[in-house]
Computed example of a mutant assay.
Amino acid sequence: MDSQGQDERHLVWTVVGTGIGPLLLAATREGLVNVVFHATDRVRDRALSRLASRLGAGPVRAPGSPLLDEAVRQVGAYFTGARRDFALPLDWSLASGFSREVLRELARGVPYGSVVGYGDLARRVGRPDASQAVGVAMGSNPLPVVVPCHRVVGSDGGIGGFGGGLETKRRLLALEGVLPEPLF
């Protein structure tokens, strides 16, 4: 098998249009490894360069990849309200230690249409004093939307921060019925 075939199996990507703008979806043999917001050409190229560096493989655009085709289908269904959770294999290699533990708990324990506080999520993973570290984990989430960091909010009732921008977080929470739809 040539090196391109090996790369294709190792790191494949596509961009999908959504109600919050284009998302870059990237996958390895193990599963979906990265979701990137606002995937304009420039953002996409930077993200793919970082991924190639971190994973040690050249990214290959992969129309027809079964995993990415399924991810595109599920993301599309989520944004139309026809899907509430994702059933995709995930490659956790871009998250480690405490961040990985927190993100896994978030993925399995905070369902569609609900929110959790940073401190509550810290308690769920047995580190009640680590709410700031939970915030760091949310900010470094390599799989936003699929691993729903938009569902983590401040204990004061504020929506907290968000790597995709606060307007994107508001729109995701509105999609899930947590916030009202913006008037305009």
Rank of each mutant, 00 (worst) to 15 (best):
F37Q: 09
V147E: 10
G126A: 05
D69S: 15
V12P: 13
L68Y: 09
S99G: 12
R171E: 02
G160F: 01
R73P: 11
G31P: 06
L25A: 12
L106T: 00
G177P: 08
H150K: 08
P22A: 02
R108H: 13
T14G: 14
A122T: 02
A62L: 02
Q74D: 05
A71E: 01
L172N: 06
I20P: 14
P89R: 03
G31F: 01
G17C: 10
H10C: 14
F184P: 13
R9T: 10
G154F: 07
H10L: 14
G97M: 00
L24F: 09
A71T: 02
P182V: 04
A71D: 04
L25F: 07
S53C: 12
E70W: 08
L24Y: 09
Y112G: 05
R84N: 12
V102E: 09
G119I: 00
L143T: 00
D7A: 15
G56A: 05
G163K: 05
P148K: 04
A52W: 04
L25C: 10
A107M: 03
P59Q: 04
A82R: 15
Q132C: 05
L88W: 10
A133D: 15
D45K: 11
L32K: 06
M138C: 06
V12F: 12
E167H: 09
S49K: 13
R73V: 06
A137C: 05
E181H: 14
A82P: 10
S93Q: 07
A137H: 05
D85V: 07
L143W: 02
L11D: 11
F79H: 12
L166M: 12
L175K: 11
D69Y: 09
S53K: 14
E167G: 11
V146F: 05
G58C: 13
G19R: 06
V35C: 06
Q74V: 03
L67E: 03
S49F: 06
A95C: 01
N141R: 02
V12T: 14
R73G: 13
G113I: 00
R124M: 11
T80N: 13
L121S: 02
G81E: 02
L173M: 13
V116R: 07
I159T: 11
A122M: 00
V110C: 14
L68S: 01
Y112R: 04
G165V: 04
A26P: 10
G163W: 00
E105M: 08
V102I: 07
G19Q: 09
H10S: 15
Q4N: 14
Q74N: 12
G76T: 08
E181D: 14
G113N: 00
P59T: 01
T168M: 08
V116M: 06
R104G: 12
D120L: 04
P66V: 03
W13D: 10
P144S: 06
L51T: 01
G56D: 04
R73C: 10
V153F: 01
F86Q: 05
